[in-house]
């Protein structure tokens, strides 16, 4: 379905993957006027463990509310990758939900065992990049959002900027936008190199 994009962000508790999903859905609904939903793993279930959030963005009302054809997958942790990507195992229901041309973005320091996934994989030391450029790993989720939206164009740049601003705690706005821009720039470079068509909604 070309007018529907499905994304899954995963990590371990505290890395901000769930928040990134919420911000992305907010960007779509509040600033692009699109239909969107986000469905996080339930906290009572996963305290301290692997978490994920599924985001669906569409130009039409969303009928089936769960992911089943994921276009973009992000992993911040090996545990999350193993669990929610389904490790190149056709018997795994999560793996079966990936579309053939899906893009997989992983933090290359934190996810090292890939199991030869059949999808396009972008490996980047996201946390280290955030630490190096911004002095704190806490911005890594927003940095990743810059990459995700820069590559997929699932929401407009303006929308994600506004959504990040809306959520940024007082005093962190500038740093968050800087993180987003680092992501944008990486995405731009990557797209030029790989000539990937954006999956615009």
């Amino acid at each position: 379905m070309s007018n529907r994009v499905e994304l899954r962000f995963s990590g371990v508790g505290g890395q901000g993957a769930i928040l990134a999903g919420a911000i992305l859905a907010e960007a779509a609904v509040y600033f692009d006027g699109k239909y969107a939903l986000q469905s996080p793993t339930y906290t009572a279930q996963v305290r301290g463990g692997a978490t994920k959030v599924d985001v669906i963005i569409s130009s039409d009302p969303i009928i089936f509310p769960q992911t089943s054809e994921i276009n973009f997958y992000l992993a911040f942790a090996q545990r999350a990758y193993d669990r929610f990507y389904g490790g190149n195992n056709p018997g795994n229901r999560f793996f079966r939900d990936m579309t053939e041309d899906a893009i997989v973005l992983v933090d290359s320091d934190l996810v090292t065992n890939f199991n030869d996934p059949p999808h396009r994989v972008i490996k980047l030391p996201i946390l280290q990049l955030a630490l190096k450029e911004l002095g704190r790993t806490v911005f890594s989720n927003v940095l990743a959002l810059g990459i995700v939206t820069g590559i997929t164009k699932v929401v407009s740049d303006e929308a994600i900027v506004n959504a990040v601003k809306r959520r940024a705690p007082r005093g962190t706005e500038e740093m968050n936008l800087k993180a987003l821009n680092i992501g944008f720039n990486f995405a731009k470079k990557y797209m030029e190199q790989k000539s990937i068509d954006p999956v615009t909604v």
Binding site: A22, A36, S39, P40
Partner: peptide
């Protein structure tokens, strides 16, 4: 049911 209860949707 749990699906629509926990889903955040526009």
């Amino acid at each position: 049911d749990e699906v629509i209860a926990h889903l955040h949707e526009g």
